[in-house]
């Protein structure tokens, strides 16, 4: 105990490590919440499986050699439409699942942000190695006095942590959404007129 305090005190911006540590713990808590609410449930697992299956099936059907016969082509188009429709439905269901835990996770993040804000309000927790552009400066200089633009507030550091740590943690644990679901959203931005 006595040995660690001087070590930390020697760093002028040791607070930044505190912010990162708290952010990391928060990320773990958020993923635990997501696991409890979503990922362990059988309905999510079957949903994910159906999305993966539909995505692979779609890719297979689209990459197969185009048939010269018109009748076969028509039936294939119908099959593709059917798979696409089921993929969209599964993706929508997945979004609902995500929304449920998203609310809880957002609450946790908000509470932690409030805590850090009360601890480090007006305090410079790090030094930026670059001059932030105006839009970034509003975040990085939030709540700080003085006019040095390279001063970094807790808010900016917390934002960087939230994005980088949570994203990679999800990836590492295998919690990121199936690519088919993400791709489906981008692939069909407009409602399919054939479905209506």
């Amino acid at each position: 105990m006595a040995t660690t305090i001087p070590l930390f005190a020697s760093f002028k911006y040791a607070d930044s490590l505190t912010v990162v540590g708290i952010s990391f713990c928060t990320a773990l808590v958020c993923e635990a919440i997501s696991w409890i609410l979503i990922y362990r449930t059988s309905s999510y697992k079957s949903l994910k499986y159906s999305i993966d299956k539909a995505t692979k099936k779609l890719e297979t059907m689209k990459t197969e050699n185009p048939s010269s016969k018109l009748s076969i082509k028509k039936s294939k188009t119908k099959k593709i439409d059917r798979v696409e429709t089921s993929l969209k439905e599964s993706s929508r269901d997945l979004s609902l699942f995500k929304f449920k835990s998203g609310a809880v996770v957002a609450l946790v993040l908000f509470v932690v942000f409030g805590l850090l804000n009360s601890l480090f309000e007006g305090k410079v927790v790090a030094k930026l190695p670059f001059h932030p552009i105006t839009i970034v400066k509003k975040m990085s200089h939030r709540g700080l006095k003085g006019d040095d633009p390279t001063d970094c507030s807790m808010a900016f550091l917390y934002l960087l942590c939230s994005i980088s740590i949570r994203t990679n943690l999800q990836k590492f644990l295998g919690f990121s959404p199936p690519r088919g679901a993400a791709g489906a959203g981008g692939l069909f931005p407009m409602p399919d007129p054939k479905t209506n």
Binding site: F11, A14, S16, L17, V20, K127, C152, L157, L160, S164
Partner: peptide, 16 residues
Amino acid sequence: ASLTLFLLAWILVYSL
């Protein structure tokens, strides 16, 4: 994610 991780590492090492 890579950009934010890069910025985080850069800022932390630079500051500390």
